[in-house]
Simulated scan of single mutants.
Amino acid sequence: MSPWHASAAEPASPDALRVLRPPVPVDVALTLRPLQRGTADPTVRATSQGVWLTRRERVDGRPLPATLLLQPGPEGTVTVRAWGPAAAAAAGRAEALLGLPDDGWAGFDALLAGGAGRALPAPLREARRRTPGLRLPGAGALAAQLMTVVLEQKVTHDQARHGWRSLVRLAHEVQDATAPGPVPAGMLLPPAPEAVLAVPSWQWHTRAWVQPAQQRALLEVVRRADAVDRLGEATPAWDPAAAAGLARTLLRIPGIGPWTVAEALQRSHGAADLVSVGDFHVAHLVGQVFTGSRTDDAGMLRLLAPWAGHRQRVVRLIGLAGIRKERFGARMAPTDMRRF
């Protein structure tokens, strides 16, 4: 039995309640893991009760606060509890969050069952066998996803996590972001665009450890947040062609490149075929898994070409296979502009 439904007390009565009975296996924690920016993320938290998410859902064109709790239950059910003014809208997004409308896994599994499956390294085939409930989330909230990814541009893991936590808290100091419902301690709503714009410039560096280029790119996203979210809502999820078209549009935002777009759309739209080109680790790891040697972005795309339409599914399986990239030098040291 999962520890999530062993003995945890039921949370306070929600404003919206649903029980999902998915027609396919779904692993709630595994599916939602890409949305969590570290264990101390103020907006996504996995606890013994389930996975908590705070959101600003657009209702009649206005962003309203909501908190979600998704709890795996017996016989594959998922209980969805929601609180706040946008509780009904947030609860209604549960299937998308869990990637349930995505039928691409059936096509991927059909490839594995056929001759193409032998071309996939054995550790990845085993990872898929062990994780039948893995889905690609369609979290929406594209502007918020872009914000989290911008803070991951060309910095260390710790810098990225610290930057997101700090930005959420700085924005909360400007504009109250208390999350509705009985949330775990320390959880807050994602930052509202107007609050981000009001954060004093010096605090970006001294408190959030955000580099100047990141700050400029993030502010470009925030100034366009409403248009970005409307564009995201108009683009269907789990549609490779639609995701590619949306990616081309987002690349027009100054400071936003292919890596940032791919990472954001993987979370907001379940982009199954957008690979994170330009990543410091991914190309090396793909090369290592498929050939035993490192490769570059061009080599990675050649190796993943037989899996067109599913390339990000393959990358997710690499992460779940427990394979780690070989190291040939010291770890990258964090850049700290606060010293200059």
Rank of each mutant, 00 (worst) to 15 (best):
P14N: 10
A271I: 08
G278S: 10
L68N: 01
R130K: 13
D239C: 07
R248Y: 01
L219R: 06
G38L: 04
V315P: 03
V210M: 14
G329Q: 03
R338E: 11
V314Q: 06
T39I: 13
P212F: 05
P3W: 15
P121V: 07
P22W: 10
A217L: 09
I318A: 00
Q175P: 00
R55D: 13
A283E: 02
D273M: 03
Q71E: 14
R93T: 12
Q71N: 06
V19A: 06
A16F: 09
A227H: 09
R324G: 11
D336L: 13
A208M: 01
G76D: 11
R313D: 05
A242N: 02
Q266D: 07
A90N: 07
L303N: 02
P334D: 03
G117T: 05
L30C: 11
P334L: 05
P132F: 09
L97D: 01
A198I: 07
S268N: 08
A139I: 10
L146R: 06
A16P: 04
R324W: 09
G299V: 12
T291W: 00
G107S: 09
L70S: 07
A298K: 14
P63I: 02
P121I: 09
V261A: 00
D27G: 07
Q214G: 12
Q211L: 15
A89Q: 10
D279G: 07
H284V: 03
I323M: 11
L301N: 07
E57Y: 05
V282F: 01
G107D: 06
A139Y: 06
G84L: 00
P193M: 03
G140Y: 08
T31H: 11
L231R: 12
F340S: 11
G287M: 01
P42L: 04
K325C: 14
K325W: 05
V222E: 08
D27V: 10
P72E: 09
A242R: 02
Q214I: 04
L136T: 10
V289Q: 05
A227Y: 00
D297R: 12
V26E: 02
R81T: 08
I253E: 00
G287T: 11
V80E: 01
A247E: 01
G140K: 00
L17H: 15
L274W: 03
A143E: 09
A119V: 08
A89V: 08
R45Q: 14
G245D: 13
G138P: 06
L134D: 08
A171M: 02
R18V: 12
T31P: 06
P200W: 00
P193D: 08
L20R: 04
A46W: 07
M1E: 15
A321K: 01
W202V: 14
T67C: 01
A87I: 00
G322E: 12
V222H: 01
R56Y: 12
L167E: 04
P42S: 12
L32T: 12
Q145N: 10
R311I: 05
Q203V: 08
D102E: 10
R56A: 10
P334G: 03
P65W: 02
L317G: 07
A91S: 09
V24S: 13
L111E: 14
R58L: 12
S276T: 15
V59M: 03
D297T: 12
M187H: 09
A40W: 13
G163H: 05
G104C: 06
P11M: 06
R216T: 15
W105R: 14
A262G: 03
A141G: 11
A272N: 12
A6P: 03
R207N: 04
A333L: 15
E194P: 00
